[in-house]
Simulated scan of single mutants.
Amino acid sequence: MSNVVTVGSVNVDRTTFRSRAEIRTLESSYEWFPAPGETVRTEHVLTAIADEEFRDGIGGKGSNQAVAAACGGAESTFLGTVGEDERTYDVLSTLADRGVTVDSVAVAERETGKAYIFVDGDGESWIAILGGANEAVDARYVDRHYDRIRNADVCLLQNEIPVSTMRSLLERLSEEAAGPTVVLNPVPTDGVDPLLAEPTVDVVVVNETEYDALEGHLEAFAGTVVRTRGADDVIVSGESEYRVTPPSVDPVDTTGAGDVFCGYLGAQLAAGRSIDAAADLATAAASISTETEGAQGSIPTLEEVMALEPTAPRQ
């Protein structure tokens, strides 16, 4: 079986469903509040909404992508750090039940990361994250698990752990004669610029908001850029341009759709598919995921994705 290793974040997702008007009020009231489709870091605690109005689940871009890679047919390992409260939320047992290997996840003396997710009636999401234990994923931790990363077929990275940790990893991988295909989802976009300059990164996946924020750096990037654009065509820009038209769906919650795309893309690249063929399946998987509430619980199986394909996917 192909092998995908995700080095990244795991959060307790706290989701609330509000009207677009209510969310616009929050946007105007809090300077740090994210834009539609955006993920931002914050150290602020939102007091305008009571705790009981949030639904708790397991998320974080890293763990979401690891679960999606497992659903996409890969042997999926997650490397990251949880807090001492992880058993309160069943973080590791939930990931294991969803097919992810978590035997090397560390426990830090702080709370597990949190994500506050606001979803409107059209399924659009606004996400603010508090790093918590994710900030403890340091170079020493990665060094302890370097061989597992180096021997993977694909390594998935995001920007919810320290940039310095990922930069150290990428620089070390650059010294290898062979290593994993590295897929970077540079979200949140703040401070991620140094990673886009690393030659070890093979594929960058961004949505339109992220593309606009990073356009200058992406134009200088030597690898493949994949732009997800909601209901519009996904654009794969490498040696040539390739477009994928998403299937028509009735979205309920777009939270985590980008992570589903990245995890499926990684799993299919690890299985030896071309970037275009991998994007076909990843687009279908991400679209299906928007029809169900939540991030990880909405990730479709490979069989469900293949059933949506009108023809056999290209290699």
Rank of each mutant, 00 (worst) to 15 (best):
A282P: 12
V12G: 03
D250A: 12
A69N: 08
V12F: 02
A139F: 04
D276N: 14
A108V: 01
R18P: 00
V91Y: 10
P313G: 03
R110D: 10
A278P: 09
D122N: 12
D259M: 13
E215W: 08
V260W: 03
D120I: 02
S28C: 05
Y264F: 15
T292E: 12
C71V: 01
T77W: 09
I129Y: 00
R41N: 04
E53W: 08
G294H: 04
E86R: 10
S248K: 10
S63R: 05
A106F: 03
Y89R: 05
D212L: 14
A48C: 00
E241I: 15
A74M: 07
A270W: 07
V203K: 14
G266V: 11
A282L: 11
L184M: 12
A286D: 12
A21M: 07
V12P: 00
V105G: 07
T88H: 04
R148F: 01
Y141E: 01
E210L: 13
G121N: 11
E22R: 06
C71Q: 13
G238Y: 12
R273D: 13
D138L: 05
E160M: 07
L196A: 11
S19V: 02
A284S: 08
T255H: 05
R150E: 14
A282C: 13
A115W: 05
V252D: 08
G216T: 15
G62L: 08
C262L: 07
A307Y: 03
V182W: 05
N185M: 09
A50F: 01
V100C: 03
P247R: 04
V205G: 14
G99C: 08
V107Y: 00
P199T: 06
E198N: 15
V40R: 07
A136L: 02
